[in-house]
Simulated assay, not measured.
Amino acid sequence: CIDCDTSGLYCTACLMQSHTRSPLHRVKTWNGTYFEESSLASAGLTLKLGHDPALCDSRKAKNHSHLMTVMDTNGLHNVRLTWCRCYGFSQLGRELLRLQWVLATLVRPGTAFTFRVLKHFQMLSHVARTTPWDFCNAIQRITDNIQPDLLPDIYRSFNRIQHIWRVARAYKRGGVTSVSRYEMQLGMQCVSCSWPGKNIPDNW
């Protein structure tokens, strides 16, 4: 594993066991001649949402499997998800939000972005004036610096999600609990104006 702090060679079974909750790590596999780039999904890792399907009380429940592209600070990753429709499982979007992943779309989602990569880009855009286009190109280069054109195009999805992320963070910092399109809830009140109960008496 490239992203783990410990060094050493592991078999597939030990690698899967140690990365049960770390599906976004990059790995290399031995093909008989050299170590080549691979993924945990290709090695057989499946991220189980909600609970372990093996412990599901509903034996007749059908387990769903889905392959998703996830963007993180260390590149693009193919992650295989599995979940069931038993009692207690919420919507897929909510389950991924618990993992701090943001879906690009709620209808047949195929791409997700981690909170970590969105925070990273927001800081780079403020300090280094990094554009979404340059940031996506850098992430693709981190994933594959030889043939980045063969990777999926994530610019449009990322550009839309990072706008939503900025607005959501602004609402959070502003203490907004409900959003109304007819109210300027993020606008700051003028400190020079007279506000009864704030800078002037109520019966002024």
Score class of each variant (00 low, 15 high):
F89Q: 05
Q147D: 14
L47P: 02
V179Q: 06
L76N: 00
R173Q: 08
P148D: 00
S18F: 08
A170I: 00
W83C: 10
Y10E: 15
S38G: 12
I200R: 13
H51Q: 06
K48W: 07
K60W: 10
Y10R: 15
S18I: 11
C56L: 02
G93K: 10
L103N: 10
T177C: 13
G50Q: 00
V102M: 11
S38F: 08
R156Q: 14
C84D: 08
G197M: 08
H77D: 05
P53Q: 04
P109G: 07
A54M: 01
G32D: 11
K60L: 14
N31K: 03
G174M: 05
V127G: 03
W30D: 11
P196H: 08
M188D: 12
S157V: 03
D52W: 07
R156T: 07
K48T: 08
Q91W: 11
D149R: 08
S192G: 06
Q140K: 15
K119S: 11
V117W: 01
R173Y: 04
V179W: 03
T111L: 09
V179L: 02
S192T: 08
E37Y: 06
T46C: 14
M188N: 12
V107R: 14
H51R: 10
Q100Y: 09
C4A: 07
I139Y: 02
P109N: 07
V70N: 02
Q122N: 09
N74G: 07
Q100D: 14
R181S: 15
S18T: 13
L15R: 13
S180G: 01
H77F: 14
G32I: 07
R26F: 01
T131C: 01
V107D: 15
G174V: 03
F35H: 08
D134G: 04
G175V: 01
Q122G: 05
G175Q: 02
A43K: 05
M123A: 12
D57N: 10
V179K: 06
V79Q: 05
E37L: 12
F89W: 02
T114R: 06
R129F: 04
S38D: 15
L99P: 00
H25P: 12
L186K: 12
T20Q: 13
Q189F: 05
Q185H: 15
A112T: 03
S192E: 15
G8R: 04
M16D: 08
K198M: 11
G187W: 07
R181V: 10
L151G: 00
L49R: 06
C11M: 12
I146S: 10
L151S: 00
L150E: 04
E95H: 07
C4F: 04
T111E: 03
G187L: 07
S90Y: 02
T46E: 13
M71R: 01
P53L: 05
D144V: 01
C190R: 06
V27S: 09
H25D: 10
A170P: 00
R166F: 04
S180Y: 10
G175P: 03
S39D: 06
L47D: 03
V127E: 11
S90D: 03
D202G: 12
S194D: 12
L106A: 12
T177E: 15
D149F: 03
L97M: 06
H51M: 02
